[in-house]
Design a protein around this nucleic acid. Sequence first.
DNA 1: GGTTTTACAATGCGATCGCATGGCAAAAGT
DNA 2: ACTTTTGCCATGCGATCGCATTGTAAAACC
Lengths: 197, 197
Amino acid sequence: MPKIVDHEARRMRLVEAVWSLAVRGGLEQVSLRKVAEEAGVSMGQVQHYYSSMQALIRDALDRAVQAVNATIENAVTAAGTTSPEVVLRAGLYALISPAEESTRLMRFALTAVGRAVSDPTTAKVLAPGDDELLTLTAGLIAAAREERGSVPRGEERTDADICWSLATSLGLDIALGYRTPEAAERVLDHHIEQVLR
Amino acid sequence: MPKIVDHEARRMRLVEAVWSLAVRGGLEQVSLRKVAEEAGVSMGQVQHYYSSMQALIRDALDRAVQAVNATIENAVTAAGTTSPEVVLRAGLYALISPAEESTRLMRFALTAVGRAVSDPTTAKVLAPGDDELLTLTAGLIAAAREERGSVPRGEERTDADICWSLATSLGLDIALGYRTPEAAERVLDHHIEQVLR
DNA sequence: GGTTTTACAATGCGATCGCATGGCAAAAGT
DNA sequence: ACTTTTGCCATGCGATCGCATTGTAAAACC
């Protein structure tokens, strides 16, 4: 067998290049040559690791979405077994984090959203939280309400749905420069306060 | 002077072609030749009315945003001077309307969102509701609360902000096929109910 | 130590792109 | 009638695109 290289590292390097190029000038600025140059490798290497441009971009998107999900899970895990309200806030805040890498991933996701309009595969990758996340969040909301002594009012699933929609929307606003993370946090805080009231 | 033609009609025809092409295959599928073919005219005509591809797409985006705003204003105007809650609902519902043209415009806007990441001009066009809209909406919320006899709690501006964020988010979900208009309406109804409670 | 397999690198091809250019028909002004 | 202006068409150019092809150096296997 030939040279032993770290395939994962190679791919990650190329995906990073795609992220940078796309954030800098949109997905349309991502080409085999540009990616190769940005990553400091030859065009041949890009072709060696990805059978097509589509495959490269798809992998870049997959990894971006997975990275965002990972930050949410990490935030929730870090919150540990404190009060449900703290866990709830931790998860939602992950989407409006001022961390530069977080914003970068959101920005890249935004450059790919356009494709979701005509490409069902892309749409599936970018789809909002699944049932499992919604169920978990609904449980957190119910528990947090109980903890606060609020009147339970059912419909926690819809409340959870709205929370994630709002947090995502705020995160995208941050990525587009429409809001600062601080302003977004104030809005999100206010909403959580209303929900748990 | 030469042939008299309806410039506005010509431009609108080209913009329509851009919308169709972009919704069908993303903004990257929009080219001078394709637009000309889609509109059933020559490439020269496209060049005659738009000095560059950028100008054409910018006009298409401007008109799309203006069209969406128009549907909101029309909905509000149509609601007339009934109760503030009805007016509020009318405006918000406009963003999740099941009307085909409405979804089409949202879809096109989505194909352009990616550009906003790296193009401040596009970002400005796609920016969320301005202060005026927010102030107006906040007034409607306050009035609707009073009408219902709810306790006033200030912060109506933030409530208005959240309402528009949620409605927009739901509208985009519909455009991407993540939700049906009916499901989105249920979510929005629930939120309005919570806000006015 | 030769063979094979892997990991690239370099180059070329056909298609498509935005845009510039030049020409031409029609109609308003003189 | 003739000039001028406008609306539009057709064509060509240089750049860039994704991808196929071919070549090559290195390392595991026999």
